[in-house]
Simulated scan of single mutants.
Amino acid sequence: MTGRMRDGDLGAFKSRLVLDRYRLGEYVDIYAYGDTREDEPMLELASHRFYRWQEWPLPP
């Protein structure tokens, strides 16, 4: 066991799944949580973004 996914992380495909399933324009607030760099495209869709339990992007 390597701890890695056989086909890799979903990356940009994850955000495509969200867009296909939900009409984001119908929501006032959108929260997204990620823990890998591949989650960044999905985090970009949200108005409230958290990466590894911290608000993202982190302040400089």
Score class of each variant (00 low, 15 high):
59 P>I: 00
1 M>E: 15
5 M>D: 05
13 F>P: 00
35 D>L: 15
46 A>L: 05
17 L>Q: 13
54 Q>P: 07
12 A>V: 12
42 M>S: 08
25 G>E: 15
37 R>S: 00
55 E>D: 10
21 R>T: 15
54 Q>V: 14
14 K>D: 05
45 L>A: 10
24 L>S: 13
58 L>T: 11
40 E>I: 15
43 L>D: 09
2 T>G: 14
41 P>Y: 02
7 D>Q: 06
12 A>H: 04
24 L>N: 06
59 P>H: 05
29 D>I: 01
32 A>V: 03
53 W>F: 15
43 L>C: 13
2 T>A: 12
11 G>A: 05
38 E>K: 04
13 F>K: 13
1 M>A: 12
33 Y>L: 15
59 P>Q: 10
1 M>Y: 03
51 Y>Q: 09
9 D>Y: 02
11 G>L: 02
53 W>K: 12
51 Y>E: 06
54 Q>K: 14
22 Y>A: 08
37 R>G: 00
19 L>K: 10
30 I>N: 02
44 E>K: 14
10 L>K: 03
10 L>R: 08
25 G>I: 06
3 G>R: 07
54 Q>H: 15
43 L>T: 09
17 L>H: 11
45 L>R: 02
17 L>D: 08
55 E>M: 07
58 L>A: 10
16 R>L: 07
47 S>E: 03
33 Y>A: 13
34 G>Y: 02
38 E>V: 00
54 Q>E: 14
20 D>C: 03
19 L>W: 00
23 R>V: 10
25 G>Q: 11
15 S>Y: 03
48 H>D: 15
40 E>S: 02
14 K>Q: 08
30 I>F: 03
3 G>K: 10
27 Y>S: 04
50 F>G: 05
21 R>E: 14
29 D>W: 04
44 E>Y: 11
39 D>T: 02
45 L>V: 08
2 T>D: 12
35 D>M: 09
3 G>H: 09
28 V>Q: 07
16 R>H: 08
23 R>P: 08
19 L>S: 08
44 E>W: 01
55 E>V: 08
10 L>S: 06
23 R>N: 13
20 D>L: 10
44 E>F: 00
11 G>N: 12
27 Y>D: 07
34 G>V: 04
10 L>V: 11
15 S>H: 09
12 A>M: 07
11 G>D: 13
50 F>V: 10
15 S>W: 01
21 R>I: 08
27 Y>F: 15
54 Q>C: 08
18 V>K: 02
37 R>H: 04
39 D>G: 14
16 R>Q: 13
49 R>T: 13
28 V>E: 11
50 F>H: 11
60 P>S: 14
18 V>T: 11
53 W>L: 10
28 V>I: 00
13 F>R: 14
9 D>K: 10
26 E>Y: 04
